[in-house]
Amino acid sequence: MMPKLPVFLRLAAFALLIAFLLQPQWFEPLLRPLVQDNAPVIYNQGSLLQLTLLHLRTVAMATVAATVVAIALAILVTRASGAEFLPLSRSLVNIGQTFPPVAVLALAVPIFGFGEKPTLIALFLYGLLPIFENALTGLTTLPPSVMEAARGAGMTGGQRLVKVELPLAMPVILAGIRLSIVISLATATIGSTVAAKTLGEVIIAGLQSNNLAFVVQGGLIVAALAVLLHDGLQAAERKLVARMGR
């Protein structure tokens, strides 16, 4: 859906992001008009670079776990032995996506305490849905003729899965993972309302001290990460798919 940014724009955005994370004070004049006279312009309660890395780590951990579980579940419910679970798992994905992330996060707090854990749980549960949904779509919409041919060639169920079904479904699955990462990047900021170390901390500090520069820099870093990761993953997907000969 997202139109591809031209390569040079993407590289420029990446360079700007890195420069901002390493040397935020260079950008002080740009953000100065957003704050009242004596207020700090650049987030001063921690390193932006460190928060960005922690933010990415949280998203990465949750996404890896969500990917493994979602694909395993999708494989399970699309085998003959798990077919009974298929209709329900479809409706569960629909139901799950109606749960607001804030609610998931807030409800995880009493069980897992404050900090990174409830955020990881919320991101994991929330990230499961798009990956699972896409993996289901990918594995249930394979061309019947191909499946027939694989069966005819005498492939076992496991061989069909690894050599035919998963490779064919891969583009759709990867798109699901990409969607999940973009959603998680934004949702992770909400994790800072329960004291997780993410870029949300910068935004919330800005909201609390009425410092617009904080809000803008936190928000723009996350948005830049989302756009760059989205584009990068899309490019990687295309290469991978091309290499697989499709």
């Binding site: 859906m1 997202m2 139109p3 973009v182 990047l185 934004a186 949702t187 900021t189 909400i190 870029l199 949300g200 935004i203 919330i204 800005g206 909201l207 617009l212 809000v215 803008v216 936190g218 928000g219 723009l220 996350v222 948005a223 989302a226 756009v227 989205h230």
Partner: peptide, 14 residues
Amino acid sequence: NAIQTIPSIALFGI
């Protein structure tokens, strides 16, 4: 699409 990538708490704040 670009607007969608701005995290909600930041957009509210901005």
